[in-house]
Amino acid sequence: MADMSTLEGSFTTPDGHELYTKTWKPTSALKARIVLIHGFSDHCNNFEPLSTLLAQQGIAVYSFDQRGWGQSVHTPAEKGRSGPTGQVMDDITAFIEHVLSASEGSDTPLFLMGHSMGGAQVLLYASRYGPAEVISKIRGFLVEAPFVALHPDSKPWKITVVLGRLAGKLLPHMHMVNKLDPKKLCRDPDVCKALENDPLCHDTGTLEGLAGMLDRASLLETGSVVLGEGRGEGGKTRLWVGHGTADGVCDYYACRKWYENAQVKDKEMQVYEGWYHVLHKELGEDKVRFAQDVAKWVLARCEGDGVGQTEGADVVEERARL
């Protein structure tokens, strides 16, 4: 395995908000670059060990704590204050442009990947919101357990959603704690405990931010947004989806339905039988296997022109639990 290094930093958005950044770089030949987008009540340092394992295979990883989350929160009032969907998408665009502007690796294929809430953001970005000039520079899109719909056991009461939306119009920055059940996140109890005790995972959203998150999922679940061809480098869309069948946070079946409806020739879905929500931290060697699956798909699209490896493929692979 190649060696790697890490770098912490910051990035200032066009409207002047400072976001925490973390980069994992291989010290040997650079083969690919991935921009990673984290999920709800999470932060980019929780992408370990995925980010390290990818860097060790020649894939540089660039990530940031989204507005309202992790170390991008500078005052208590900023917790969960991600802004509406337009703001979320603008932040992703600005960070991708920031990565693209770096002189090193400027000719290296770039991929965009997201987990959970971040996965839904990537699907929306790829399908609709990403500017054409940025989309044309992204070789492929990857999502891990994307928030297409909440698992039935995790869905809020409809009346709660309705009242929350009404209140959100009057008090968009009002905080609401929306705690995730740590036992549903991972089959490794030590990981669940660490996530529950992580002070940066504050479980606090604003009414505006929570409504935006639910609205984005609804667009995907109802089929209002479907990914098609022409959204990617070379005018070709490339899509990889990974989901655990025992995910108690985001609904596997809703994700699979969205994937099957995607009008994309080069698409692949890895189904992890019995796995939970945070695939990149799953039990034992499973997290290593997940990282290998991601790296394999990415690197296959960095060979030659990155187009012909699975042209016309519509692959769903089952991964059994060890």
Rank of each mutant, 00 (worst) to 15 (best):
R187W: 02
F40E: 05
I159C: 02
H175I: 03
H38F: 05
G39R: 01
H43C: 06
R301H: 14
E303H: 06
R321P: 01
K265E: 07
F290H: 09
D215N: 05
P26I: 03
T237H: 09
Q56G: 10
H277P: 14
S72L: 05
K287W: 08
G9I: 00
T108Y: 07
G9V: 01
Y259T: 11
L166C: 10
V143F: 10
V191F: 13
V134H: 15
V177Q: 05
Q309L: 01
A126S: 02
R165A: 08
T23R: 04
M113Q: 13
R187V: 05
G205S: 14
V122C: 15
L220C: 06
H115N: 07
D247Q: 09
L19P: 10
Q71K: 13
I135M: 09
D181F: 12
C186E: 05
P156G: 03
Q270W: 13
L166N: 05
H175Y: 07
K137G: 09
L142C: 15
N45V: 14
P182T: 07
V162D: 09
K287Q: 15
S116I: 06
P199T: 15
A291N: 03
E133K: 15
Q57T: 04
L210N: 06
Q87T: 10
R67C: 08
E78H: 02
E8K: 01
S154R: 00
G130K: 09
G39V: 04
G212R: 07
G242C: 14
V35N: 09
Q57S: 03
P156V: 07
E97T: 08
R139T: 08
A149P: 08
L163S: 00
L112D: 02
I159D: 05
H74E: 12
I96W: 03
S127V: 09
G308R: 11
L19N: 11
H115S: 08
H98L: 04
M213A: 09
K158V: 11
Y129C: 10
R216H: 07
Y272H: 04
